[in-house]
Amino acid sequence: MQHVGVQSLLKVHIKNKTYLGANGVETQALKDAELTLTENSFTVFFGPSGCGKSTLLRILAGLDSDYEGEVHWAHPPKVGMVFQEPRLLPWRTVKENILLSADPTFSEQDFSQLVEVMGLTEMVSHFPGELSLGLSRRVAIARAFASKPNLLLLDEPFVSLDAPTAARLRQLVRTLWVDNPITAVMVTHDMREAVELGEEVLLFTARPGSIHDRLTILPTDRTSEATIEAKRSEVKSLYPHLFET
């Protein structure tokens, strides 16, 4: 049942998605994965490595169209993506990297505001090769927001960062998302990230992936470090098999 005034942006039903491995063996990545994304919601795909959650994200991004099933959009898709690796153009400055993907209505003033919030003001004329991984990730996140997407996709955007940097970046994403509400999907295998950012967490089964269960994260679940940790432990005790050791 849908609440009044809550509209769905996207309805997805992937009946079957296989891919051919390098050894020539066909692997089923997704089987009967079904979901609906409501406008301005923050959904998290959670599950162990290789469960097909990144594959589903790539299908939403329009990077993979080789599947059986349906992806139905309420509006024309406009995707802003943050990849696992920052994927910046090394031969363009930070500013050029952001502006190249920006929406036509993204003004010079919007740019100044965005880099200010992201703490990138000093870096705008630098090349990506001069930045740390944490800073490059910030640029990649800024680029995705500058494209003014109707669907923001985050593929493990905080992986391989040190804990304080990851925490700062999660806070930044949270701030940006609260200030510019957009439908967002994040892939992660870290329940702390899921609880801190997500409103709804979809738990994936192991390969072939499908959605095993869904959890609703209430704002009260992230009021403090202690509540986040409590929620994380609770989920972990309920679904120990979804956690990587």
Binding site: A61, G62, L63, K78, V79, G80, M81, F83, E85, R87, L89, L100, S101, R143, S147, L153
Partner: peptide, 10 residues
């Protein structure tokens, strides 16, 4: 990977 980035941002 960079081409995919370009593709995802249309």
């Amino acid at each position: 990977e960079l081409e995919e980035m370009g593709q995802s941002f249309r």
